[in-house]
Design a protein around this nucleic acid. Structure first.
Lengths: 343, 343
DNA sequence: CTGAAAGCGCTTACAG
DNA sequence: CTGAAAGCGCTTACAG
């Protein structure tokens, strides 16, 4: 008859206990734990059994001390926090990355470092080995964090094409320019001739590239590119509303609007409604992202779908490659027009 | 003239290097690193200097191996992912907890475990020592994860009052019932007499308590509590819309609506508008949460403010207490009526 | 395929 | 206040 011991937190079983139980050395247990190479079928079975019997759980701290790897990655946002919570794209991206990494049993640490102070703290944290790599999301150019991380030797993959000197960093992005072209061609195809645009900030790739696509299609369609048809927003709903209001004041005869993000397009919709315009009858509106905002809008937005699932998958793939020392580059993914009620 | 060495990733300086540089033992360096107790001012200065000179960064894996602590905590969501991205409350809570923990230099790991499989993975992860404690967010009752974690000896603090057997777990919540009372009193005070309600799911504390508050105030005001004035939603915008539509069909003479979340209230607003009702002239609408949805709504929602900042602060405080072995209990925080245009 | 052994970088009684 | 030393739980050449 065995003494029954209450299920308390006692000393957790170690690899040593497993080895004894299985009648093998600790080395063999460790090899089993790390893929089972050079372990005979007999030993493997014994170890497996011993693990079950002892309730052994690997101590990751010990492993990390030796391997120098933490087994986790960071999802880093170098934007003021509001950005994150306002923009549905970030949420989708975060979810996608979390899932893609979970498939490799790698947990994703979410970190937000919008202020200089937070960024300092973050750099200390990351370089102290707490994560093996960083998925960096920042819409703006010249983000110093990316370069500082890279300088410190931390594997980094960016979401979105980097502008400026960091241009050669590993990144994944949708084809902004081509997406913009597709949308504006769509508007032209509907017979619209006075097509305005609300751009993103012009220090972001999305701002610059989508505007470029807009210009290209107007030019190829023989339509004039007037400065007064172009207004700049900040990717926020309010920014889109203000920009659209300004455009409408300058060009009351506007018959279409290409807005560089769905959230801004929501704002533009509000501005148009307030000005008594019907969408799409008077003014057709095209967004960008195919975020939840596109579906939530009234009318629902025709938009350019960014393939967030694939973007996150590719970001994770690149990061894992970098972590294992491979030299990886960039991935640009195609977009797709999604037609709804606003055009 | 010194040999200039390219800034490569060489062997990172350890406590040993610092000790040599400072002319003290490793023990002294370690004591300095851990609060500086039992370290003379002279030694402290020398160590400080040596750390700067060597560029030493603590290896957390080594520390964790000994202390058994990881120095990080988890923000765990046991809901299907959609919930998280749809509900603005979660975002605010996450941000608050991240900040509160950052003040203690503790990073917050965000984890989502909606499926059984994810929950299994999570339990393995957490019990393997990767985090020191868990902030658990789950609206529904009888969440098995909370109890499994507690059983495994992991410090856990819940957001929201737990229902059912886990009722004694540490938790932080707003005073749901009192908030509901305040809102319904406000509606009564406006002269409304046919006040309906859209509740949350009745297996959640928010669902049950806010309904109870509603009933209490109707009773104390001498108004009849009719079953046909009560409909249940699921905290989603669509759910709120459907519930409000049903209520309107049953009671076209409705003159006010207390909706148990802002998001559902947004849906209710849509239903009312579709039915040709003016808000607040024909029907006054009160929400709950004071989330971003309250401001985004047209008209902006009168609502009950949940003090998310304080909630997250208290959650972190309780968690840290639990981690250091203190036995902590529950904190209930007061709510506040925020009047906007919908009443 | 396997075991014995060194060592990862730190913390923590212990003795002074 | 301080140093010498043991040890946390694992991995990984190394020799067989």
């Amino acid at each position: 008859m065995t003494m029954s011991v209450p299920a308390r937190r006692r000393r957790a079983p170690t690899i040593h206990d497993v080895a004894r139980e299985a009648g093998v050395s600790r080395g063999t247990v460790s090899r089993f734990l790390n893929g089972g190479h050079n372990v005979s079928a007999v030993s493997a079975k014994a170890v497996e059994e011993a693990i079950r019997k002892t309730g052994y759980v690997l101590n990751r701290h010990a492993r990390s001390l030796i391997t120098g790897r933490s087994g986790s990655a960071a999802f880093l946002l170098t934007e003021p926090q509001e950005k994150f919570f306002e923009d549905p794209n970030f949420n989708v991206l975060l979810r996608g990355c979390t899932q893609a990494l979970a498939a490799h049993d790698i947990p994703l640490l979410m970190m937000i470092a919008g202020t200089r102070e937070e960024q300092r703290r973050l750099l200390r944290y990351v370089t102290s080995g707490h994560v093996d790599g960083v998925l960096l999301v920042s819409s703006h150019t010249g983000d110093p964090v990316a370069e500082q991380l890279a300088e410190a030797g931390v594997p980094v993959v960016l979401c979105g094409k980097p502008m400026g000197p960091g241009g050669r960093m590993a990144h994944v992005a949708a084809d902004d320019r081509d997406g913009a072209r597709e949308m504006v061609r769509h508007l032209v195809g509907l017979g619209r001739r006075r097509i305005g645009t609300v751009t993103g900030p012009l220090d972001t790739p999305g701002g610059v590239e989508r505007l470029a696509g807009y210009r290209e299609v107007l030019a190829e369609s023989g339509l004039p590119v007037a400065q007064e048809l172009i207004a700049t927003g900040d990717y926020s709903r309010e920014g889109g509303e203000a920009a659209a209001t300004a455009l409408l004041a300058r060009r009351p005869d506007l018959d279409a609007l290409f807005v560089a993000s769905d959230l801004m397009a929501q704002g533009a919709l509000a501005a148009l409604t307030a000005a008594g315009r019907r969408v799409p009858q008077d003014v057709a509106v095209g967004g960008f992202d195919d975020s939840s905002a596109a579906v939530a809008s009234r009318p629902a937005l025709t938009t350019i779908r960014q393939p967030w699932d694939r973007i996150s998958q590719e970001m994770v793939r690149l990061l894992l490659a970098r972590i294992s020392g491979e030299d990886t580059s960039a991935v640009i993914l195609p977009t797709e027009l999604v037609r709804r009620q606003s055009t």
